[in-house]
Design a protein around this nucleic acid. Sequence first.
RNA 1: AGGCGCGUAGCUCAGUGGUUAGAGCGCUACCUUGACACGGUAGAGGUCGGGGGUUCGAUCCCCCCCGUGCCUACCA
Length: 961
Amino acid sequence: MNISVKEIAKSYEPGEVEQKWYTFWMENGFFIPSGDETKPAYSIVIPPPNVTGSLHMGHALNVTLQDILSRWKRMKGFRVLWVPGTDHAGIATQNVVEKQLATEKLDRETLGRAAFTERVWQWKAKNGGQIIHQLKKLGASCDWSRERFTLDEGLSRAVREVFVSLFDEGLVYRSTRLINWCPRCSTALSDLEAEHDEYEGKLTYIRYPLLDEHGYVIVATTRPETMLGDTAVAVNPEDERYKGLIGKLLRLPLAQRTIPIVADKEVDPAFGTGAVKVTPAHDFNDEAIAKRQSPHLPFISVIGQDGKMTENAGSKYAGLDRYDCRKAVVQDLKEKDLIVKEDKHIHSIAHCYRCRTVIEPLPTAQWYVDIESMAKDAIELVRDGSINIIPDGWKNSYFSWMENIKDWCVSRQIWWGHRIPIWYCGECVTDLGISQGRYIHVALSEERNGIIEGTYEELRGSGMSHSDIVSNTKAVTIGIQVKPFSGRQDPTACPQCGSAAIVKDPDVLDTWFSSALWPFSTLGWPDETQDLKTFYPTSVLVTGFDILFFWVARMIMMGQKFMRSVPFRDVYIHALVRDEKGQKMSKSKGNVVDPLTIIEKYGTDSFRFSLAAFAAQGRDIRFAEERVEGYRHFANKLWNVSRFIKLNIDKIMPDGIETIDVINKEIENLSRNSLTLPDRWIICRLGETAIAINEALTGYRFNDASSAIYQFVWHELCDWYIELAKTSFERNYPNRVLTLKCLISVFDNSLRLVHPFMPFITEELWKSFPHNGNTISLEPYPDLYTLIPSPPVTDACIDMSIVTDAISGIRSIRGELNISPSKRLNVAIKTFSDDAQKIHAEKVLKDNVDFIVDLAKLETLDIGGNIEKKPATMTSVQTGMEIYVSLSGLFDVQAELQRLSKELKKLDTTIMNLEVKLSNMDYTARAPKAVVEKDKLKYSELVEKRDRIQNNINKIKKLDK
RNA sequence: AGGCGCGUAGCUCAGUGGUUAGAGCGCUACCUUGACACGGUAGAGGUCGGGGGUUCGAUCCCCCCCGUGCCUACCA
């Protein structure tokens, strides 16, 4: 190969390069797992981003880490499958489309269920690909031929199978109780979907007059409007203030009702007045109190699903928004002088995680998953190590959540999602013998026989046929008394009575229900597919802690329940990406950094490398753009190594090279003695670096891996080895070709080491050299076994430090005295040969004299044991040698004295500390022998060095006089 | 209220029961040298948040305090 360096740009421009290679990878199917069954499998399922999503920092980090793992394992010879996909994000997507409809002055009710879901599919077809496109921009090496969507036919079948199995087993059930209700999304939410934020509100103290005597009880509340639904006031049974009042009746102001004073041990006498109003239908605590009473306190629901007051609130308030009603109630109470005071009060309020609307607890009938037994198993799987959570600090959170888990509300009153596979018969009778048709309430989309809505029974009674009703249904509400039945296939008749008058449950399932099946539903379950056999359980799940409960825990439960095995072996929990000040990025704060902007500015590779470098375990990431810039420089550095190599191939191997593969083989099999010291050293360091990177990645320490490769490429390969190679090239060493081949091989290995982190530039550079292979992404990843550092090579690391010490010593003097780099210096190195080690050092220096002369920019260099320090020379004292730099004319006695004294002082401190330590009998007796020996050796070395510095100082002082 | 984490160089962060405590960026000085100024060389900069304890030895382990961030929770 001949390469004209002139044609290669001086710096790396990522833009077009990235697009080119991604297309190349895709066209060649490199991301589809190899069919070679002798290779071990490695699989990851992507945490499916919302189909409404667009790439944010969290995705970028998440995807980058998975891609690093995937590419690394692929290069290590695994059959890697990384399954991509999106989830249908029920509420979020429905909201997006409803907003769109609103701009057309439409709403989903007008459109009807079928037309609306069709509309959402259209939206998905048009916009759902955005996030996928963005993942590709990041370089994600997913197998796109296996891309999945949670509403796909196959995944829907999995959802249905799971729901029906659980139903048959009695593990899903329908129940009426308080639930978190979002009045804006008009659906129930699970506990996790209600997010608590602290707000400053008011604590209002209200007088409730006693019915049969003078006086009153004062209650304190943050929600005065709910008093209209109060059915009791509760006090602690031990509370002396109220003991005598328990059982007495109160007149509930503004409502025409009397309510009792009841006792409940959970009431905190210290809070407020110690008397709490009880609104069972609108507060979870109050619901609990109501159910502890015998008989239960009545539930009076005064707030509707739309967040407005109902008829039960009384005609004056019915129809008012709950917040307007609050004002009205307070106003009315004030007029009656029933408000004692209003205090400022900070408390937490639950909000809908999708739209931030304040949650309204409402009593409704919902479907629940009985989670207890599954949770128990899932706890055990983590406890016994079947699943590793990394970093393991998250285990505690996992356990504490799982141990206190409550049944999972899975029904949602929206239209976009998996319809619950449950039907109800309109003609059967309830357990009490009443026709179920009475408890099925239907709202029609258009009036029939003068009726717009009514019970199923009434509608049938009015002459409508079953199919008339079904085809005209706008909304249906199923009473809790009605018996449900399920179907893997859509049933046509009631299994009980054979009637065809069956009505489908209107609700859909929580999106997380389908997400929980993701690790096996994406692989083809419930069918027994080859993918399932090969790739389940998956190897690792990479995700943020924010969905540990939402998703990870539920996957573990479902995986164990339906696959009888864990869904993944490892869970790697990565950080949250925050802004530079450590604040959570959010649109409302306006501190969002757009990954695509960063990519535009610095290139994908630099961005990815930064994310890996940031990903220290157990700590959040503060995203600092400057560091991305720093890693762009790193990309440029790699680019320029390649230019340097090509330039020298042109010069030194004018016939070009065959393939890199041949060179790699040659270097691996070469006798180490035919290589220069720097050659042997860089091979040694490459091997050590490869080991370090592989170890780091095995432990998910991405930051360690990236810093190891950065350190090696920049500070060893570039700063030292290339500079040393120049000596070999420019002085026309006989073995300069070998050195060049060595450089080529080390660079090739470096590119492979970097590839999982920076896939694009490494492919670009790798492809610019001749190889047998077609892509770097399938080349072997360097590790211990391909780069065995034989003993002479490891010795090279020690020998090399003698040479670099000498060079650095001279450079220090030059630098500290601000001597121009262009001025060549005359230097002598006195070696001390009082032991074998030092004799060896002298040999190493003499063998490598050219390297020292070139890198330290010397005119002359003498090395020997009997060299005498000349006057007017600067001195650098090193272990085993003293370096004298002649500076006739430039020599500054004071500067030199100052320099040496400073070093002396530094040494003295260290020596003193060591002395104290070593003279401590406890230390020498108790500390491990090796540690003490090391300290003793260090001590003698430092003392020797100190003495020689002192010696030099004395000489100069004598000279000065 | 409970739980978890963090506090190390100007900034962003690594790190370890025994090291002369590191990196990147920034800063200072010198240098446009044939890979790279997205560069090179040299250098300044830290009593590892405070106090106590365990230990021969603590930046690292334990306790308390201060600051800070997060998670969970039924304070009306």
